[in-house]
């Protein structure tokens, strides 16, 4: 399972990274009119295995260390590069995703590909398999570093703070009747809880319950607020509004019971599932409502495994 996951992450990176992110830019080039012997110094001193051949800024071929050795064996060191180089060259654009390079290496079995710019077709770099490996490793290292930092910033907060009781409070204001902004509180809280290092399942349960409650505020009231309290043992979310209140709380809790107006139903809600969904995803739910005064909903999600995560 872990193996599959890692492969996927690396595959993901090959789509994220562009060829220009990993290619070598300081490239040695040689003119095709030079003799093979002139390659000796460059190949030896720069420790490279292939050189693009460029005439008047135009890429015309590529010559590899294998070509050089062949000429050496056959005593053809005075031959011109243009007679020995590979002319039918396969190139890649600098702005292509790295995965294209990976695929071309697999397809052709070459050791390197010259990279050209899409705009003027000029040579801008060269890519070898080792450039790909280095590029992916570097990106992984950065991602790992960010992850380490994120974990430190957030999930250790309860251990780092010295107090008899610690809780964090996050407050969100919800505008009534504005469906374009509905969901901002729930998605904001979701992001926050995730950054705190809570397990994805806990975060999901809290986000879904908050979202349903937020939809209720938007659909039925003139506005309200959502306050989440997080301590090492539980998430407590209190959702309040200033009316109109629910006349029959017991009836409102029945799955399928709805008083939602048509415009709410058109938006994909109002099927009488909101409160039962909240109940389903939380460990404790308390709903109090007074007609004309407002509704007070309190939900609790337990974090029994929070401390074990370290």
């Amino acid at each position: 399972m872990d193996e599959i996951r890692k492969t996927t992450k690396i595959q993901e990176l090959t789509y994220e990274l562009k060829i220009k992110d990993v290619m070598s830019e300081n490239i040695e080039t040689v003119s095709s009119k030079m003799p093979i012997s002139s390659l000796r110094d460059i190949l030896y001193k720069k420790r490279i295995s292939g050189i693009p051949i460029v005439n008047d800024n135009k890429l015309v071929g590529i010559i590899s260390i294998e070509d050089f050795i062949k000429c050496l064996e056959q005593g053809e060191m005075d031959a011109l590069i243009e007679d020995k180089m590979t002319k039918n060259i396969k190139t890649l654009y600098a702005d292509e995703p790295l995965v294209h390079a990976v695929m071309k290496f697999e397809k052709y079995g070459f050791g390197r590909f010259p990279i050209i710019s899409r705009k003027d077709k000029k040579l801008v770099g060269i890519i070898t398999k080792s450039d790909i490996i280095k590029g992916v490793l570097k990106k992984l290292e950065t991602a790992y570093h960010d992850e380490e930092e994120r974990r430190y910033r957030a999930s250790h907060i309860f251990n780092d703070i010295v107090a008899d009781e610690v809780f964090l409070k996050f407050q969100y204001y919800v505008e009534g009747k504005n469906f374009d902004r509905a969901g901002e509180a729930a998605t904001g809280l979701k992001k926050t809880l995730y950054r705190l290092g809570l397990s994805p399942e806990i975060v999901r349960r809290a986000a879904i319950s908050t979202y349903e409650a937020e939809i209720n505020i938007v659909a039925f009231t003139e506005g309200g607020e959502i306050i989440a309290y997080i301590d090492p043992h539980q998430i407590k979310i209190i959702i309040t509004d200033k009316g109109p209140g629910i006349p029959d709380v017991k009836k409102a809790m029945e799955p399928g019971f709805s008083t939602a107006p048509g415009w709410v139903r058109e938006l994909g809600f109002g099927a009488g599932m909101g409160l039962s969904n909240i109940k389903k995803f939380t460990d404790k739910m308390t709903l109090r409502s007074t007609v004309e005064k407002g509704t007070h909903l309190e939900i609790i999600i337990k974090l029994s495994d929070y401390r074990n995560e370290d």
Binding site: F179, A182, G183, A186, K190, E201, R204, A207, Y211, F269
Partner: peptide, 22 residues
């Protein structure tokens, strides 16, 4: 979590729903 949602409903809450439900 991790699934695909097919819907003929077309508004921003579809994406919020997908987001909170992973």
């Amino acid at each position: 979590p991790g699934s695909i949602l097919l819907t003929s409903l077309k508004n921003i809450q579809v994406i919020n729903t997908a987001n909170v439900a992973d």
